[in-house]
């Protein structure tokens, strides 16, 4: 057991030495891998943010009934009695125009602009929340409510959210395709790196076999090298994407707070990070394994 550990330790050290030995070539390789991986990764993060946003909206379909500016309390009570006991409705809430104005000031930091308006341009409104998955019933209610006296405009908030969801689904497919293609590229890059390494170490492999090295012993440093290359590439991609999200957040400023709570955009969490490491490391290992298996055959039967 301890001997196996020692042999793995030696193989790992050997792989590190090889990476460090040809620093410039190794670094360029790693950069290519890192950038390639960062493309689907960045898209994944963007989709994650958009999807968080739209899911909030779609999970609770909302219908807003804006009242006419001249609508009085009688009209409002009338509308409220129609809403009460309607089958499509989960709950509803009256939002007075003064309250709406306060919300607007707080939410988007628009207080300066609002002050300058001098008067409140917002109407009173009823915000109706449908039952979960009750988007269609709410759609029917929208057509109906639009004809009620005192209702100026009835607006359903789910349609765009559902459209965004569809776009996100398409985007996910693109991420999977792009990720797969670049995964294949990662395997190919590693395959080639290991091929060159094997060519450069021909004599060593030959002599080692002559004095009793097993195939596993000869393979091991190359497998470590491939895995390490994938892992370091993943680290570079991770760093690039996290940095980019930070920059984007700062650039978006106020707008970021519309997309995400507290204006903090979603980043790669621990699960994403582990998945990335396992995938990239695994693909690197696989590329190395393919290369070693194929190229070491040439040393048979010695």
């Amino acid at each position: 057991m301890s001997r196996l550990l020692r042999e793995h330790g030696l193989a790992f050290q050997d792989a590190l030495r090889r990476l460090g030995g040809q620093f410039v070539a190794a670094f360029l390789n790693l950069l290519v891998i890192g950038i390639a991986l960062s493309l689907p990764l960045a898209m994944y993060v963007v989709l994650g943010n958009v999807s968080d946003f739209s899911r909030q909206a779609a999970a609770e379909p909302q219908l807003t009934l804006f009242l006419r500016p001249d609508a009085d309390a009688t009209v409002a009570r009338n509308i409220e009695s129609r809403l009460k006991g309607h089958a499509a409705i989960g709950r509803y809430q009256f939002v007075a125009k003064a309250v709406a104005l306060e919300d607007l000031k707080k939410a988007a930091g628009l207080s300066g602009i609002v002050e300058e308006l001098g008067r409140n341009p917002l109407p009173d409104a009823y915000v109706v929340t449908g039952r979960p998955d009750g988007a269609e019933a709410l759609e029917a209610l929208r057509s109906e409510a639009a004809t009620w006296p005192g209702v100026d405009h009835a607006q359903l908030d789910t349609l765009w959210a559902r459209q965004v969801e569809a776009v996100i689904r398409g985007g996910r497919t693109v991420v999977v395709i792009l990720g797969s293609l670049l995964g294949v590229a990662l395997v190919a890059i590693t395959f080639n790196t290991i091929r060159l390494q094997i060519l450069g170490r021909r004599e060593e492999i030959e002599v080692s076999k002559l004095i009793g090295a097993t195939n596993a012993f000869i393979r091991r440093p190359f497998l470590y090298l491939g895995t390490l290359q994938g892992l370091i590439g993943a680290c570079i991609a991770w760093g690039l994407v996290m940095f980019a999200v930070g920059v984007l957040e700062r650039e978006l400023g106020v707008a970021a707070s519309l997309i995400a709570q507290d204006g903090v955009l979603r980043r790669l969490d621990i699960r994403d990070t582990i998945a990335l490491a396992v995938l990239a490391g695994g693909l690197g290992w696989f590329g190395a394994w393919l290369s070693v298996t194929l190229h070491l055959r040439r040393f048979e039967p010695v």
């Binding site: 076999k209 002559l210 004095i211 009793g212 090295a213 097993t214 195939n215 012993f217 048979e300 039967p301």
Partner: peptide, 16 residues
């Protein structure tokens, strides 16, 4: 077996 050859060689000392 090709897997056994390395272990056999470890009992040899080769001067080329």
């Amino acid at each position: 077996r090709s897997g056994a050859l390395p272990y056999l060689r470890r009992n040899l000392g080769l001067v080329f």
